[in-house]
Design a protein around this nucleic acid. Structure first.
Lengths: 179, 179
DNA sequence: TGCCCCATGTAACCGGTTACATGATTGG
DNA sequence: CCAATCATGTAACCGGTTACATGGGGCA
């Protein structure tokens, strides 16, 4: 399971509260690993109990206390262990593939709209990624190790979205030719 | 949830028993949607109770009876409904992305082997897909509607694997440059 | 007054994974 | 004789999703 390790990584990048993490999972990290705040609080509690992370309560005027978590030695050890443990291959799982095969027993045209919608989503996400790339990794700049790796992950996102985009176009072309 | 609909589609392609379906999910359909036999039996039971499918017990000498399922009118209706219902976007979820960001706080070289392994897996799968394409969809042949759509799905698989393959190479290049 | 943001959780449910269980036939 | 294949399931667990719950501060 990678959520633990995604959180550990995020906390290494910068200590944070559950709430902070939830917002991060709606942004940067969330582009390749999603998590709700409920999930995050649960896992934080588990990791705290296991001694992987430590919480410092930070009093705030008016607001509830903020529990800011930091990664401890055991957490780093666990992350190192996980990094060296091989993962199973990342396999495709696609509702759209099922829909295409199902469409053969119905009117194929009825899924065209779906692919148009998906295309829009992926195009929007891709545009966003390209923005990030332009903003954070300008050509010619010398990047830190951390930044280089973050850029690499962003590239995988760009590739993913580009692939989907192309496929959505191809699918619509084929579906229209069948109508 | 698409498992129900994947099974309905598979049963429309050809009526089958739970065991048959499990084998199909290890092959063709399984390349874009995985399911274990336990899952399949559970869902078959549920769909039978809901009246989407009907079972005919087929006696076999020596063996346990085979329950062959066929899609009924309600099943077709459900599939049609689902086909027209828009899906949420297919979002990236990648353990490898987490590993890359985590690697910044460890020795980046320690994940190189992982990407080499993933590359091998994806290369093998891609080769298999290309075999299928050559075997089932020879250039110039006139394809049925069903075959055309199956080919389209296969193409998405090819694109997926190609994308991963490229990314694995790129990742290894970058990781080596950081060492 | 009402809504969004900050900040933290609990609880129920559900799908997917893993382990366990049974029992006959076929082939090396 | 043993292993693989055919054929069907049950049960426990676990991660992810959705709904519910609380409560103050800032702003229109």
């Amino acid at each position: 399971m990678a959520l633990e390790h995604a959180i550990l990584t995020s906390l290494l990048e910068k200590p944070a509260s559950g709430y902070d993490l939830a917002r991060r999972f709606d942004k940067t990290i969330g582009f390749f690993w999603r998590a709700t705040h409920q999930q995050i609080y649960r896992v934080l509690g588990r990791m705290d109990k296991a001694g992987w992370i430590r919480a410092r309560s930070i009093a705030q005027k008016g607001r509830l206390d903020k529990k800011v978590y930091t990664v401890g030695a055991d957490g780093r050890k666990e992350l190192a262990r996980w990094l060296r443990e091989p993962l199973p291959p990342e396999e495709l799982r696609s509702d759209l593939g099922v829909k295409l095969r199902a469409a053969a027993f119905d009117d194929p045209a009825c899924v065209i709209a779906e692919f148009a919608q998906q295309q829009q989503w992926h195009a929007a996400r891709l545009a966003q990624y390209r923005e990030f790339e332009k903003r954070d990794y300008p050509p010619g700049a010398k990047l830190s190790r951390e930044a280089t790796l973050r850029q690499l992950v962003l590239k995988s996102g760009i590739q993913y979205e580009t692939g989907w985009l192309e496929f959505c176009r191809e699918a619509q072309r084929v579906l229209k030719s069948l109508a």
